[in-house]
């Protein structure tokens, strides 16, 4: 009996200290208040349409209805909860906001009329502003290409935006999509000429005034 007790203790002690430190990552989920950003929720709520964020009852309707929900690391309900708790880093670096296809299903279904799609837009803007968006995801790259082309010319060119995105993310992908491109071209469904608006200075003036 006397021998068994130390054995048991030794067994408990042998529960590998390395395991706790290296293998088990549960401690990463536990955060101290100092590590969170208490102002984050208010920052998000300051965007137009996002102030209903605090009404959320965490029912999960948004996560259930979201067509992209199964691809996200945090579903919309969790994102709203995390914003309110102040998990700024996790929220802004996650893929979730960028996977939102903005189909407005959650906005329509929400029992508390929270505009979740607009919250996602606010998070996207915040992530771009603070350079925290996921680097290797093509979606922010596409958004940026679209933004720059439209800002410059006033109109968009589908083919140009897509080709630019491919060269910035995965240069081999255009080869894979070449057949599709040729098929589209033969049917006259893709254009390579850049359309422009006539009064570009006027548009630039509007955009610059709004920015300030």
């Amino acid at each position: 009996m006397q021998q068994e007790t130390p054995k048991q203790i030794r067994f408990v002690g042998k529960l590998d200290p390395d395991f706790v430190q290296k293998m088990w990552r549960g401690w990463k989920k536990v955060k101290f208040e100092e590590e969170m950003d208490p102002q984050f929720a208010e920052k998000v709520a300051s965007y137009p349409g996002c102030n209903t964020l605090f009404d959320c009852i965490q029912c999960g309707t948004c996560s259930g209805i979201c067509p992209m929900g199964s691809f996200m690391e945090y579903a919309p309900r969790k994102i709203v909860g995390m914003i309110r708790a102040g998990f700024k880093g996790e929220v802004l670096t996650s893929y979730t906001t960028w996977l939102c296809a903005s189909c407005y299903a959650c906005t329509v279904e929400c029992p508390k009329n929270i505009k979740i799609t607009d919250i996602m837009y606010a998070l996207k803007q915040l992530a771009i502003k603070e350079h925290m968006h996921p680097r290797r995801l093509p979606i922010p790259v596409l958004a940026r290409q679209f933004f720059e082309i439209v800002k410059k010319f006033g109109r968009n060119n589908e083919g140009k935006v897509v080709i630019n995105m491919y060269f910035r993310t995965n240069p081999l992908l255009p080869l894979r999509n070449l057949i599709m491109g040729i098929k589209l071209y033969l049917r006259g469904r893709i254009a390579f000429t850049q359309d422009k608006i006539q009064n570009i200075p006027q548009l630039t003036k509007i955009l610059n005034t709004v920015k300030m």
Binding site: Y47, P48, A101, S102, Y121, A122, K124, Q125, I128, P140, L142, A143, R144, F146, F147, V150, K151, G154, R155, N156, I197, L203, I206, L207, T209, V210, K211
Partner: peptide, 19 residues
């Protein structure tokens, strides 16, 4: 001019409304 679509709104919402 372009309406801004869903992409422009992801970068700068106010500018998208302006467009």
């Amino acid at each position: 001019n372009c309406c801004g679509a869903t992409m422009y709104m992801a970068i700068d919402q106010m500018q998208a409304f302006g467009m």
